[in-house]
Each structure stands twice: as structure tokens, then as C-alpha cells.
């Protein structure tokens, strides 16, 4: 298989994930987009592992590890989103502005 196919698919998935992280207003949608980015990375890893015929199977093993970490991250991320929702009644990222530099003076 021409290596370009999985690699380009991964690149496009990654870009879609970037767009989602930067443009979506709901925090959970941001988490979903982050998952897309991680999946793109996984696909890349597997493709290169197959191409290089890695004896250590580093790519596939790292893919497994990445999946594990992504799962853990989603769990914790959702816990945080729930906390934010409990405190602010909203998970709209645009309205979570307490880190904003104040308008007037210092």
C-alpha cells in the first residue's frame, strides 16, 4: 500500500480535529475534537509501524498506549466539565471569561 494514503488521511483527520478544538463552543465538543486528533496520531503510528516492519512493534504498542491515555483523559476531562457545569450552569467556553484581562486600567 502506498504510504501516502494512511498518512494523508491522518493529516486530514488531524486538521478536522484542530478546527473543532478551536471553533466549537461546547466543552464536550472540544473533547470530541481532541479525540479526533489523537486518533489521527494513532493512525500515523500504525502506518509507520507497518511500513518500517518494526521488530519491536513500537508503533502499534504506542498506539495501544495512546488509546489508554486518551481514555483516561476523556474521563478526567468530563469530570472537570461536570464540575464547571455544576458551578457556572454552563459549559459554553465563550462565557467562561474569568481569566480575561480587565478592560480598564491595570
Amino acid at each position: 500500500m502506498h504510504l501516502v494514503y494512511p498518512v494523508v488521511v491522518a493529516a486530514l483527520l488531524f486538521s478536522a480535529g484542530v478546527y473543532g478544538v478551536l471553533a466549537r463552543r461546547n466543552a464536550i465538543l472540544v473533547l470530541m475534537s481532541a479525540e479526533l486528533m489523537l486518533n489521527a496520531v494513532n493512525l500515523n503510528l500504525v502506518a509507520f509501524d507497518v511500513w518500517l516492519r518494526d521488530r519491536l512493534h513500537g508503533g502499534q504498542v504506542l498506539t495501544l498506549f495512546t488509546i489508554v491515555i486518551a481514555a483516561a483523559e476523556v474521563g478526567l476531562g468530563l469530570a472537570i466539565v461536570l464540575l464547571v457545569f455544576r458551578n457556572r450552569e454552563t459549559i459554553d467556553i465563550d462565557s467562561l471569561q474569568t481569566l480575561q484581562e480587565s478592560r480598564e486600567g491595570e
Binding site: I93, D94, L96, E101
Partner: peptide
């Protein structure tokens, strides 16, 4: 310059990326 600090992490990330 202060206007760049709008508290929205998506803005920061956009700049970064």
C-alpha cells in the same frame, strides 16, 4: 495589547497553532 488577553482558551490555542 491587552485585547489579546480575552480569557478564552480557544483564542490562545488558535494563536499557538
Amino acid at each position: 495589547l491587552r485585547r489579546a488577553q480575552n480569557g478564552n482558551p480557544q483564542t490562545y490555542l488558535t494563536g499557538l497553532l
